[in-house]
Structure formats: C-alpha cells, structure tokens
C-alpha cells in the first residue's frame, strides 16, 4: 500500500491549541503556533528556511533541505510531495499543492526555495 499522510491534515480535522482552544486545521494561523509554543514550556518554534527541493527515488516523494534555526543547521527530510508545511505568514504549503488539495481538501500554496516554515525543537536540550 502507498504511504499516506496522517489523518490530521484532512480538511475539517479538529486541532487543540495549547490553551485548549479548538480550531480546524484549515483555520490555523501563524500566531496559533507561536502562542501554543509559548504556553507549552517544552517546545520552541524554529524558523526553517527551504534551501533545496530535490526529487527522491521513492515514489511521490521529495527531499527538502532546510536551514534550521538561528544557526541555520542543515537538515534534510524526505517527505511525500503532498506533505504540508506551515509557512510563516502564508499558511499550508506543499511541494505538490494540487495533490494535497486532491487528497485532503486542504488548500495549499506551492512550497518554494526561500519559504520559511514553522518547525519545532525541544527547549533546553543541552
């Protein structure tokens, strides 16, 4: 069977923010993630800039290289092309927005080099 995305990216999925508020996945905003991370205490929002997007040998997959955080640490992840990332100030974006919309009904922009995505790290890992 083909790999698929987790169910919470389906349009209409109910997401609980750190303050307990419930929102639909398609209604989430940049501030929701930032405020939730502030409340959580354990999680920190990082800015991860898309540096490269390459094809992958795996079907329907891409390899995205990010520069993560203030130190711009290079991190590569292999994802399905329909996997949505949340871009600061823009919202959900994927390598293949048509496919994301087709599979999940989630409105998506095209993820491009230079986009700054929300990612998480743990606080105080040292």
């Amino acid at each position: 069977p083909a790999p698929s995305l987790p169910p919470y990216f389906m349009k209409g999925s109910i997401i609980q923010l750190a303050d307990g508020e419930l929102k639909r996945v398609e209604d989430l905003r940049t501030e929701d993630f930032i405020q939730s991370a502030e409340i959580s205490g354990e999680l920190k929002i990082d800015s991860s800039t898309v540096e490269r997007i390459d094809g992958s040998p795996a079907p329907n997959s891409a390899i995205i290289q990010f520069a993560v955080g203030e130190h711009r640490v290079q991190v590569s992840v292999e994802v399905l092309v329909e996997y949505p990332f949340f871009v600061f100030g823009q919202g959900w974006s994927s390598c293949c927005p048509d496919r994301t919309t087709q599979l999940f009904e989630l409105s998506c922009a095209k993820l491009s080099v230079g986009d700054v995505c929300i990612s998480l790290t743990l606080k105080n890992l040292k």
């Binding site: 999925s13 997401i15 923010l17 990332f85 995505c117 998480l120 790290t121 890992l125």
Partner: peptide
C-alpha cells in the same frame, strides 16, 4: 470526533544534539 494536538502538525527539525 478525534482531536489532535497542535504540535502533531509541525515537524521536529531538531538539529542533531549528539554532542
């Protein structure tokens, strides 16, 4: 109806803390 925590939707791109 399932409710999912907000942090499920955001990838952990933690720089490796292997030091």
């Amino acid at each position: 109806v399932p409710v999912f925590p907000w942090h499920s939707l955001v990838p952990f791109l933690a720089p490796t803390q292997s030091d």
